Simulated assay, not measured.
Amino acid sequence: MPSEKTIDMVISELRAAIGGLESAVDARIERQRETQDVEGEVRRVHADRARLAQELDQSQFRANRLEEVNREVSRRLVTAMETIRAVLDR
């Protein structure tokens, strides 16, 4: 009988160890899955940042171009007003 109890105890301990190992493997797989999710999110954030940076550059270019056009229009308006004043003064 004592040897049967010992075998039963060993089998029970082995089952408990296997259960603990399975739990550890499951936890590891879950952490790896979460890490992959985070890495995917980081990639999406970087892609969004790159897209937004490009859009910002394009917007800045358009704003600069509009400033140049605005200065040219202002210059032409001043020239036209001076021409009109000169004609009226005659």
Results as ranks from 00 to 15, higher is better:
residue 1 M to T: 09
residue 1 M to K: 04
residue 2 P to I: 13
residue 3 S to T: 12
residue 7 I to F: 11
residue 9 M to C: 08
residue 9 M to E: 15
residue 11 I to A: 14
residue 13 E to F: 08
residue 13 E to N: 08
residue 14 L to S: 06
residue 14 L to E: 12
residue 16 A to P: 01
residue 20 G to K: 14
residue 20 G to Q: 11
residue 21 L to E: 11
residue 22 E to A: 08
residue 29 I to M: 08
residue 30 E to I: 06
residue 30 E to K: 14
residue 31 R to K: 12
residue 34 E to I: 14
residue 35 T to Y: 08
residue 36 Q to L: 14
residue 38 V to P: 00
residue 39 E to R: 02
residue 39 E to A: 07
residue 40 G to E: 12
residue 41 E to L: 13
residue 41 E to P: 00
residue 42 V to K: 03
residue 43 R to K: 15
residue 45 V to G: 02
residue 48 D to N: 15
residue 50 A to Y: 01
residue 52 L to P: 01
residue 52 L to M: 12
residue 52 L to C: 02
residue 53 A to T: 06
residue 54 Q to N: 08
residue 55 E to M: 07
residue 56 L to P: 00
residue 56 L to K: 04
residue 57 D to N: 12
residue 57 D to C: 07
residue 57 D to Q: 13
residue 60 Q to L: 07
residue 60 Q to I: 04
residue 61 F to Y: 12
residue 61 F to G: 10
residue 65 R to M: 03
residue 65 R to H: 09
residue 66 L to S: 07
residue 68 E to R: 02
residue 73 V to M: 02
residue 74 S to L: 06
residue 74 S to E: 12
residue 75 R to F: 04
residue 76 R to Q: 10
residue 76 R to I: 03
residue 77 L to N: 10
residue 77 L to M: 12
residue 79 T to Q: 15
residue 79 T to P: 00
residue 81 M to G: 01
residue 82 E to I: 09
residue 82 E to S: 03
residue 83 T to A: 12
residue 84 I to T: 13
residue 85 R to M: 07
residue 86 A to R: 15
residue 86 A to S: 10
residue 87 V to S: 14
residue 89 D to V: 10
residue 90 R to H: 14
